[in-house]
């Protein structure tokens, strides 16, 4: 059995609003083992980014964590001192926020931005630092001369690679990447996905890849979790899950992906996701589900349980 690196248990994170809280992450549990790429998929607004902030305790008001545990190598990140947390962030767990390639400081050269991340955590000589930065740029397929450039001189794809280099700078054990390929051209997307796989082999690190893009997930993840309206509805081995999705939402999501290589009739899912301030009782997919059982699914909330080897599903059809 591979060792568990991160163990998220019953995590609940809400946003305060004048009416009712937005139940963005509602009792989410999963784990990440060493050297694994775990995908988190689901449509916009289902809570993926909120989950990422919460794991790193970066959730800002009106967001707040209501409960749960985030065990990283056994210690609960939600309980430790701020000081220790800061030490763990970057050095042990690094984070590539959504749209971060557009958040690079426009008036700082690339070498200063990568350098800052390193010297905040390590004592290192100037010469060594320069060498480290160059190596990092080369490892994401960029020319060392990019170090002297400013963000505006780089294309979106190059900036995204700089952001990945920064996340790799301190040799972390876990990298959380939120929509790392969104808004990039397809050839660049492919290059970025390739890089995320390299991270696992080069750094021997684990990766949590968050993206709504199911085809991108299919290309690189080992295991996949599917979120719907603040909850994980299914999690399991990627091959297996794409071959035989069990939850009706996973099935719908997978059959709604158009493919360039074959023309098959696509079916949309009727309706749309619920308002997370007042999600429906029972299963949150109930109003849209083609297999719903009235009197059961809209009353009892299905729990995420193992229905076959290494596959957990939250659905009353599998009882």
């Amino acid at each position: 059995m591979p060792d568990t690196l991160l163990d998220v248990r019953n995590l609940i994170a809400y946003y305060m609003t004048p009416t009712a809280p937005v139940r963005a992450v509602d009792n989410v549990s999963f784990n990440v083992t060493e050297k694994e790429i775990l995908g988190i998929a689901g449509e916009s607004g289902c809570g993926k980014s909120t989950l990422a902030y919460s794991i790193l305790r970066l959730l800002k008001p009106p967001g707040y964590i209501r409960g749960g545990e985030v065990l990283f190598k056994g210690s609960d990140l939600l309980k430790i001192e701020e000081e220790e947390l800061r030490r763990i962030r970057w050095k042990h767990i690094s984070y590539i926020p959504q749209s971060s390639m557009n958040a690079l400081n426009p008036v700082m050269r690339i070498e200063e931005q990568i350098g800052d991340a390193i010297i905040n955590h390590e004592k290192i000589s100037k010469g060594e630092l320069r060498k480290r930065i160059e190596d990092l740029l080369v490892s994401v397929g960029l020319s060392p001369s990019v170090a002297h450039m400013y963000p505006h001189e780089l294309s979106g794809g190059m900036r995204q690679r700089v952001v990945i280099a920064m996340a790799m700078a301190l040799d972390p054990e876990l990298i959380i990447a939120d929509e790392p390929t969104t808004a990039l051209d397809v050839v660049v997307q492919r290059g970025i996905l390739q890089l995320l796989r390299d991270i696992r082999s080069k750094l021997k690190a684990s990766v949590i890849m968050i993206t709504h893009d199911m085809a991108a997930q299919a290309q690189i993840v080992d295991r996949l979790a599917i979120m719907y309206a603040g909850k994980i509805v299914e999690i399991g081995d990627a091959n297996d899950l794409f071959n035989d999705p069990l939850h009706p939402y996973s099935r719908a999501l997978i059959s709604a992906i158009p493919s360039i290589s074959e023309k098959k009739k696509l079916k949309g899912v009727p309706g749309f996701p619920p308002d997370l301030r007042s999600p429906p009782p029972g299963c949150r997919f109930y109003p849209r589900c083609p297999h719903r059982i009235p009197g059961k699914c809209n009353v009892d909330e299905p729990r995420l349980i193992e229905v076959k080897n290494d596959r957990l599903v939250a659905c009353h059809l599998y009882r």
Binding site: G157, V186, Q189, R190, Q194, V221, N243, I254
Partner: peptide, 18 residues
């Protein structure tokens, strides 16, 4: 070639250089 196929059994075999 760069369009991801939504099937883990049909992953890219070769690499590309950006």
């Amino acid at each position: 070639d760069s369009v991801p196929v939504p099937d883990p059994e049909r992953r890219w075999k070769n690499r590309i250089e950006l």
